[in-house]
Nucleic acid binder design. Sequence first.
DNA 1: TTCTATTTGGTAAAATTTACACAATAAAGA
DNA 2: TCTTTATTGTGTAAATTTTACCAAATAGAA
Lengths: 257, 257
Amino acid sequence: MDTTEELQDFIANGHKTFIPHVSMDNAIFGYHDHQLKILLSQYKAIEGYCLPGGYIKRTETLDQAAKRIVKERTGLDDLYLQQYKTFGDPGRIKWNEMDFEKFSEMAGVKHIKDSWLMDHTISIGYYAITDFSLVTPKSDLSSYCEWFNIDEVPPLLYDHDDMVKESLQALRQQLYYYPIAAKLLPEKFTLTEIHAVYETILGKKLDIRNFPKKLVFLGLIKKLNEKRNIGPHRAPYLYRFDMKKYNKALETGTTLT
Amino acid sequence: MDTTEELQDFIANGHKTFIPHVSMDNAIFGYHDHQLKILLSQYKAIEGYCLPGGYIKRTETLDQAAKRIVKERTGLDDLYLQQYKTFGDPGRIKWNEMDFEKFSEMAGVKHIKDSWLMDHTISIGYYAITDFSLVTPKSDLSSYCEWFNIDEVPPLLYDHDDMVKESLQALRQQLYYYPIAAKLLPEKFTLTEIHAVYETILGKKLDIRNFPKKLVFLGLIKKLNEKRNIGPHRAPYLYRFDMKKYNKALETGTTLT
DNA sequence: TTCTATTTGGTAAAATTTACACAATAAAGA
DNA sequence: TCTTTATTGTGTAAATTTTACCAAATAGAA
């Protein structure tokens, strides 16, 4: 939403387009060159950071909603997306009087408290991950948006600390099963690059010599007959993901380490 | 709900107590003596089976809601409960004219279609598991409830086939990490008994001699200085779960097979 | 006392994971 | 052209874990 009119219409009539009482908050992770970040947004009316979120259209699937909301913030279409948990404890959103006042003022709407937005709302959690160098976070009328290093995330509003913790846990687990790294690397990549993806996301060291063995043995990545010349030293071979093998491994349940 | 009055009040005023647009459907699994079953319910007004479900009170947490809904059907308090996925695709619930008519008639309410119940509703999925020999399924005014063998589940209404599939998958995965078997066995049990739990839930054979090794090695179960005399053959030792070790294993991420 | 049915302990083989060292080589600089 | 530098590629032995089995132990029935 970029104009006050749109926002006012959303407050007055959004419940006709969107499912009331149900929201979606997305943990959008970004990886690039040994760094893991997460996208946080800050409402202009309310002090503090939270995960970027939105509402679900009555006509779209949950996956579509997640994709749309993530695209609104990142401009990207092709990220790895996964539902991980739904949050709905009573009192998960706590606004004080000043929050209401500021929001009322910002939106130019009087009876905010009576709005469909202010009734008890659960939140479906998705996480996403992409290369953050491809993204210019998009702010809108009511919030700024910005990347934070994963170990420099400030305390967040509502139950969003939980969300970050649980989504990161889900991401780390699923890195072993799903071709997540494929969305974070160019089509052809070196072993050093994919090694860095795993080390950074998992937050621990992995032996560079042993790391590729199983990946190659299972056929999940394939060595190409090409090298990349990147400096005064031996040139690394390039590799590529084999999605067919990955899907087969998913079915049979074979897993890395 | 056991009376027509209660049902009518629920239809007219339920949205004040419960969160509208949000429901909960529970895959309640039952294990006993090599058998895995699931609890299905059949509306009296509507043809076909589905998972037992309910709505979430505005004052309770999601876990509390799941516990309450499961208790309504099983009478039990102490089952293993876990959220696994939320479902919310448009058109997930399809009622035809006859369904509306029958339900109207059963409830004695005219304008069912205008009710809060009939608006687009998402469903939070929990699964539960317990010993089915402890349970007498409770039916109520609008539905019967009954155990089905897991491999004899008929096609279900709505998106509930998906729910069974995904919840079973989650159960099987989590059996490796969480002390689920502890809720399915007496406090003291034999290796043969716990072996049967794993084989039955996972749906595959596990070598009886190798099976206990890791469980015992990790200290998750502890051998007692007691035997149980059950027939004309060597008496098996009894074992007990060590919950402290289990929780420690959960934190450090050690896993079975 | 013998027999039956089941449990238990143990061990060798196979598979997987871990630890670790040095040769190969692209290109920058002399 | 040769040397130097920084990184990548390959291989193997050791340690650990998993798998596949056999034979002894034993409670109670016959």
